[in-house]
Design a protein around this nucleic acid. Structure first.
Lengths: 251, 251
DNA sequence: AAAAGTCGTTGATTTATGTCAAGGAATTGG
DNA sequence: CCAATTCCTTGACATAAATCAACGACTTTT
């Protein structure tokens, strides 16, 4: 699953519990660069990024940051998967996104993070000190433009998710979710049909505004109808993709 | 309610059905400038904006644009209220936001709008051709930075809304909604306590992922508990604001 | 001014999804 | 390798909110 060169981060995982210690990393060799903020960069700008970046590594369940913490860093996922979520006082949780290689997180307008983030699987990230990145953005407007484009895209994705949360049925939600995972896997150059579903039923439930039980039942139901197949290793085959697309759009 | 100088747009409403014809407008006199993208501008940049902007006016229910249309313009609300929404094939609708004076809409990463927009009340807007605005952004990085800040803020708001849609009860949703309207009214310098609620029950329902009936019943219930009062003219008094805050956070 | 719509409210009933409970499968830890 | 968790699934039951229906208050049209 990992496409990231980890030669430079051998022993990082030792420093527990809150994330591994950063270490300098050569961006020019980055295998997910084309997917992300760094895609727009010339050699010179890339050198600027290299100078401020550090690599980190997280084990499943490791927190990256919590809502309300000072937003001192932004991150780029290079391998694995990260979940971001918000909590209510009584513990109800809403996942606001799952992040995969090439995805960016930590962008904050305020001084603190608006959500919490934690690793789903074993994950590697690039970490940028926010202040330093901002200084870089001032030097290279092209990076700022790229960032604005990414934020606009995130906004469109968020609106799609509101439509899902507010108006779709459980079945439509699950179908939409699996198709989304599949499309994003393809975008990263991974296999889109038996699609990897690395997160737990409970995580999925909290992403879709459902309960674990309903997620589980709905998977079973889609399987019985021949729309999907549950494969070992947390993979799902989209046995009848056209049907899934219809279900997802509520037709 | 309107704080916008409409001297220059007298007869615009004549040109129906899709929005009024644009006309040049002097930004320096804009009364909502401090709230919006234009807040960061020097005289020179403001002149650039003035050169490409045109004013428009919409009657209640007038469409501004539809999802999928070429995204040729971006807009700034100067008076009134606009609703933005997405639809499913069978007509189910999810409101993704209500926009008030100072709010910006139409920002799109793709070539087409990701949602539809239409006037809630009688509304005035500033309209910018997207291409020309982009050229201006290249000249004035400060504007781009401001726009990125606004997009980041929108993203945080969207995540809050996902929490609401996925995890809050009807009562919590209504309480959150009224408090949000109240806070935003204060931000614009309007009265935050008897708060104006210009949209219909049905619009509110589609914003909160509920039905009209549930919205209506929940208003009644909050009134009976003494948390709010329904005043004539679509105003709501937050009779027990601390209680409302508690309800909104699920305590 | 009557007719025809909208809009908001309330009541009766249904239903999709949540809650509670239990057992099996898979994974982790000693 | 076995014990202990955690995760997933399924069943029985409960419930918040949806649906269906009716009506009065306004608005708009004719």
């Amino acid at each position: 699953m990992s496409t990231f060169d980890i030669r430079n981060m051998g022993r990082l995982r030792d420093s527990v519990p809150r994330a591994g210690a950063p270490k300098p990393s050569p961006c020019s060799a980055c295998t997910v660069r084309h997917l992300t903020l760094c895609a727009s960069l010339e050699e010179e700008e890339l050198a600027g990024m290299s100078a401020i970046v550090s690599a980190m590594e997280l084990a499943p369940g490791d927190p990256l940051f919590d809502e309300g913490e000072p937003a001192n860093h932004v991150f780029n996922v290079t391998a694995g998967a990260v979940k971001v979520y918000k909590l209510l006082a009584d513990g109800r949780r809403q996942m606001t996104g799952f992040l995969f290689p090439g995805d960016f997180l930590g962008l904050a307008n305020e001084e603190t993070y608006a959500y919490s983030a934690e690793a789903v699987t074993h994950t590697t990230l690039c970490r940028f000190p926010r202040r330093k990145l901002e200084r870089l953005l001032e030097q290279y407007p092209k990076m700022e433009r790229r960032l604005l484009g990414m934020a606009s895209h995130e906004l469109a994705v968020a609106q799609e998710q509101m439509l899902l949360l507010g108006r779709k049925t459980a079945r439509e939600k699950i179908a939409s979710f699996l198709l989304m995972l599949s499309r994003r896997a393809v975008q990263r150059g991974q296999n889109g049909d038996p699609v990897g579903v690395p997160m737990s039923r409970n995580d999925i439930a909290d992403y879709l505004g459902l309960t674990t039980e309903t997620v589980s039942r709905t998977f079973t139901q889609l399987k019985q109808k021949g729309a999907i197949n549950l494969l070992p290793g947390g993979k799902v085959e989209l046995a009848d993709r056209p049907r899934m697309e219809e279900i997802a759009e509520g037709e």
